[in-house]
Design a protein around this nucleic acid. Structure first.
Lengths: 122, 122
DNA sequence: TTGAACATTAACATGTAAGTCAGGCTTTGT
DNA sequence: ACAAAGCCTGACTTACATGTTAATGTTCAA
């Protein structure tokens, strides 16, 4: 698969696909004419990189746990587990707070609607 | 509480606390001598900002939902059912994004642990 | 064979998180 | 009174995601 199609499927730009390569996050084969050729595995890997970046990981961090990115991913990616756990903590803390906040709003909304209901039923 | 202690409790630098202010993400009171004085609420708010940034949100995005960051849903977070509903939409959208991000991490973690398990059981 | 659509690299640009350092004021302990 | 430690602002620096553009090569269809 050529660059354009790959980029479209991943909903990122070709620019970023090249960026991933230049940053050493993935390697992509070439056809005879020098064009990049993306395999299905390349797509999955690039998709993971995209998600990690969108989740606040730097290229440095992603590179550091590069082994954890491949489908088969053998090798030493133990350090990756640490980072994943940390990230999970961040996300979960945020989620918990968002949930609290959500309840505050819901309660208030309910209170408002109670008042409206009691007014309109008068 | 002064800057040093606040930064230590939040495990970020004073530099970043000042940064949050300059970016309009929070306001911090001053004592007579001009020193910043962080309240418990300030600490919580800064902690949320820290978590949002660590989760890949830009200052622009954080600023946009600034009202949802305070402890009390009061302030600009009130003003009738309309605003509350908007607020809820914001929060739910955020929660959805967070869940996506969380799933990315969880999937990877699960994949890693499957691999480790199958290796160690051999 | 010419043009459109695709590809390539390289260079330049922008926004922003984050570090660091300099120059200067304030507080506090000795 | 002096030194150490804190604070303040502002400026310089780096890293990095991402966009844009320019110059050029390749493929394909009319």
């Amino acid at each position: 698969m050529q660059a354009k199609e790959a980029a479209e499927k991943l909903e990122i730009t070709q620019r970023m696909l090249r960026h991933y390569e230049k940053e050493g996050l993935m390697e992509v084969g070439r056809t005879l004419n020098g064009y990049r050729s993306y395999s299905a595995a390349d797509l999955r890997r690039a998709g993971r990189i995209r998600d990690f970046i969108a989740t606040g990981f730097s290229t440095r961090e992603i590179r550091a746990m590069s082994a954890c990115l491949s489908d088969e991913g053998s090798g030493p990616c133990e350090g990756g587990v640490e980072k994943l756990r940390e990230k999970l903590e961040h996300i979960d803390r945020l989620r918990a707070e968002l949930d609290d906040k959500r309840n505050v709003v819901i309660d208030r909304l309910a209170a408002l609607q109670n008042r409206l209901a009691s007014v309109s039923s008068r």
